[in-house]
Write a protein that binds this DNA or RNA. Sequence first.
DNA 1: AATAATAATCGTTGATTTGACGTTTAATAT
DNA 2: ATATTAAACGTCAAATCAACGATTATTATT
Lengths: 236, 236
Amino acid sequence: MITYSEQTRVLVAVDCIIFGFDGEQLKILLIKRGFEPAKDQWSLMGGFVEANENLYGAAERILHQLTGLKDLYLEQLKAYGSPERDPIERTISVAYFALIDINKYKTQISDRYHAEWFLINDAPSLIFDHDLMVEEAKKRIRYKAALHPILFELLPKKFTIPQLQNLYEQVYNTKIDNRNFIRKVNSTDLLIKLSDKDKSSSKRGAFYYTLDKNKYKAKFQSFLNFIPNPEHLISM
Amino acid sequence: MITYSEQTRVLVAVDCIIFGFDGEQLKILLIKRGFEPAKDQWSLMGGFVEANENLYGAAERILHQLTGLKDLYLEQLKAYGSPERDPIERTISVAYFALIDINKYKTQISDRYHAEWFLINDAPSLIFDHDLMVEEAKKRIRYKAALHPILFELLPKKFTIPQLQNLYEQVYNTKIDNRNFIRKVNSTDLLIKLSDKDKSSSKRGAFYYTLDKNKYKAKFQSFLNFIPNPEHLISM
DNA sequence: AATAATAATCGTTGATTTGACGTTTAATAT
DNA sequence: ATATTAAACGTCAAATCAACGATTATTATT
């Protein structure tokens, strides 16, 4: 029987960078670690990969544990494997980022992890190399969202154009001309206008829209350009 | 003392998808495995991550072992972790892709690995999930090269415009209008025209060019568009 | 009933880029 | 002299772009 017996085995973990949008602000979900090392420090949600699951499955499980949600947008970011990244024992971590609508998130489930949403630009510093992971995840999202309509994954089923624009403005930390933005959004043909309005943030009220799922899938690969001169903003 | 003792440890490997260009054709470097399992089958070059090195360092080492080359373009593709991907024992593999100028490659070093260059569209099928890795690496290169000038990493120090165009045509498997291509290339201002010519492939001879390294670094992030309608070609 | 505030549409501008295509000139091996 | 490839220059209409002006719609507030 063949074995790889002379090789060292290491721990493999999955860590999740969870981005959320509540209709107003872009946030990230962090947990307060309940165990050593680095107990009581802020951290990404993570866990070890189990014997029978693949990496994506592990990320799904971990995400479900914390949020109670399934079928989220989830994409592998990168594997991190510096020998010193975990002080206790060498651990390779495969980072995944998820995009979720905060309104779907169930608080009660997260209580055991002491999870909290933080504004994307106002989050505490994290354990190990998690800050680096978050930075690289932000870059990746900017990069990808400049070309593909992934930001819709952050929005509720029904959303308004001002919410959508606000989301883009936060992701790219820039002001977007509203007239050009609407024109571009309409030209993608991805949205279906509903008959009811959101009157919470204005007197007139903004029409709700919903994503045309079929067109979304069909057009996912075709490049978008909601952001003027994205090459000035993106680096990765 | 804190430990993660109850967790299972697994093997972590690095596999390299090595793309090369010899001035005429785009190729991939494969090895014939000299050990079990899957002895004598074609495979990507890989190896286990050692105790004192990070993932990128492991990829560099493995690449150096096979090619004798250092300081190559090397980028992490993705981590692969299906439980069944290695029949002997669970192994997570972090795939890296490298871009190299085949002329720099030293044959004698590779002999112990029975390495061979294959045309990109005429390679044998590989062990484990290596075919999947190669497919995803090809996609990644197409995606990235549509936006960033990474294909220059495949070219020799001195190269001609016809060589460059040929390379793009092979990567995207398409014909490119030569007049528009030259105009676009010149407009990037990335190339320095040399005074000597390559007369091997034409009577007139084509001027050699070299990459302006400073401008290359400065402009790496700004999007290129050598490929007409890249959105028709790219998917990832 | 007037006002304020946000939402949404329509239109214009000139600049730039795009791809498709035509033409010409250059250099040199044969 | 000829064939062949390199390369530069030009044209053209279509499309896209960002920036900006103006208007209308809707409704809560006063």
